[in-house]
Computed example of a mutant assay.
Amino acid sequence: MGRIGDNGRGKLIDAAFNCFAQFGYEKASSRLIAAEAGVALGLIHRHFEGKRGLLEATDIKYLEWARQRAQRGLPTLWGSGGDQQLSESDQLAIAYLQKAVMQPRPGSKELTQKWLEIATQDIIDAQKSGVIELHATPEQCARILLMLETGALILSDVGLDDPHTQKNDMLKAMSHIITPC
Rank of each mutant, 00 (worst) to 15 (best):
E56T: 14
K11E: 10
C19H: 06
D162K: 08
T58M: 00
D161K: 13
E133D: 15
I124K: 15
S87E: 02
P163V: 04
G10A: 05
P163T: 02
A34Y: 02
L12D: 11
I94E: 14
Q140K: 11
I178G: 03
L134T: 07
S89F: 04
T137S: 15
A136M: 09
P138V: 05
L43E: 07
L12C: 10
Q71M: 11
S29A: 04
Q68H: 02
F23E: 03
T165K: 04
A16V: 04
L74C: 12
L92C: 10
E88P: 03
K109W: 04
Q91K: 15
L148R: 01
Q91R: 14
E36I: 04
T165Q: 06
E133W: 08
V101Y: 11
A21F: 03
D59R: 12
R69D: 01
Q121G: 07
T112W: 01
M170F: 10
R67P: 00
L155C: 12
S80R: 10
E49P: 03
S30W: 02
K99Y: 05
H47L: 01
A37P: 07
I94K: 13
M102G: 04
F20I: 01
A35L: 12
G82I: 01
I94Q: 15
Q84I: 13
L155M: 14
L43G: 00
L74R: 13
V131P: 01
P106S: 10
K114S: 00
L134K: 07
F48L: 08
E49N: 15
L153A: 14
A93F: 11
D90W: 09
P104T: 05
R143D: 06
D6I: 13
A16F: 07
W115Y: 15
Q98M: 06
L116D: 01
M174Q: 13
A34E: 03
R69L: 04
L12P: 11
I44A: 02
A95Y: 04
G130E: 10
T76L: 02
R72G: 12
N18M: 10
L43V: 08
R9I: 09
H176Y: 14
I60S: 14
L134E: 06
Q113D: 14
L86A: 05
D162T: 05
L148F: 03
C181I: 12
D125C: 00
L97G: 09
S29I: 04
G79D: 09
Q71P: 01
I13E: 07
R67E: 11
L92I: 05
K172M: 09
D83M: 12
D90E: 15
A37D: 05
Q22N: 06
E117H: 03
G73E: 09
L116E: 01
Y25R: 06
L97T: 08
L116K: 00
W115I: 00
N7F: 03
G53L: 12
N168P: 00
L92F: 04
Q103M: 11
V158C: 11
I13F: 09
H47Y: 14
R31W: 05
G2F: 07
L74N: 10
K61H: 03
L43C: 05
S156W: 13
K167W: 03
E26L: 12
A95L: 12
T76D: 01
T150R: 09
K61N: 00
A57G: 08
A119E: 11
K99G: 08
I33L: 02
Q113T: 08
